[in-house]
Amino acid sequence: MRISAPVKAAAQRLALPFLVFLSGMLVVFGKTDNLLYDGLRVAVADRVAPILDAISQPVATVSGVVQSFSDAVGVHRQNAELREENARLLQWQEVARRLASENAELRDLVKLVPQNTVSSVSGRVIADSGGAFARNVLVNVGHNDGVERGQAALTGEGLVGRVAEVGQRTARVLLLTDLNSHIPVEFAVSHARAILDGDNSEQPRLVYLPSKVEVKLGDAIVTGGSGGIFPPGLPVGIVASVSGDVIRVEPYAELARLEVLRVVDFGMSGVLPQSAVPIPRATGRAAKAAPAPAPAPPAN
């Protein structure tokens, strides 16, 4: 079909204003109604996942090679550090064993109902928003693997964020640093509650603290149970800076370099068969820092 020249010219002249207007409307629409977009994002992510998976594997290989070269340079120093750390961790292991047996005895004494089942599934990061104002990652596990919205995503080091959207074979994890991330946390020692608010910087902010709390650099922050999403006591990070009202937390997890995440179902609904043993389906990254291993059962 031939379109007459004037019509074509008019269409070309109007294309730009029309498309700009359309984009603007889409942005404004997204601010009022997110449900449609959520569905769209999930559907597209599921379709694009195989492509992203295919692209990300060679990229991961190349990064791995570069990484091993840079590792080789510092291998001597690293070896010494690891030996030292190993000695320290062995002490912790000893402590943990003792506490575990003591814990078991005490549980027995007070007839405590066993913990809910903790099952986890590990996923590889296949996309990273990489933008200047959105901090999230796409992992290659979804509904099919038992991932649900709201579950916690962890690395060996600590909490990374929560699952925001789930498709059949992908899930989007909103990182702690994202503008829309608000996670109930508490101080590991004083149990003072606060909210950890992402503000697009590398270190999220602590807000809504009780006024009398004394905050020191290096205070450990763990998840708080008050949100009802995460179990309390998951390691999150440490207080990295305090200046006036602004308290910033350095997450334990290295959010800039996420490769494998563990999405953990803590069975908060309590309907799963009871056994206190974690059932990892694939191995996550080994724990590095001193705090307790990730699925730390709340010690009562």
Partner: peptide, 14 residues
């Protein structure tokens, strides 16, 4: 915008 998972679908387009 959709793959990035940003809350503002249409922003990059714009």
């Amino acid at each position: 915008d959709i793959i990035n998972g940003t809350p503002y679908v249409g922003l990059s387009a714009l």
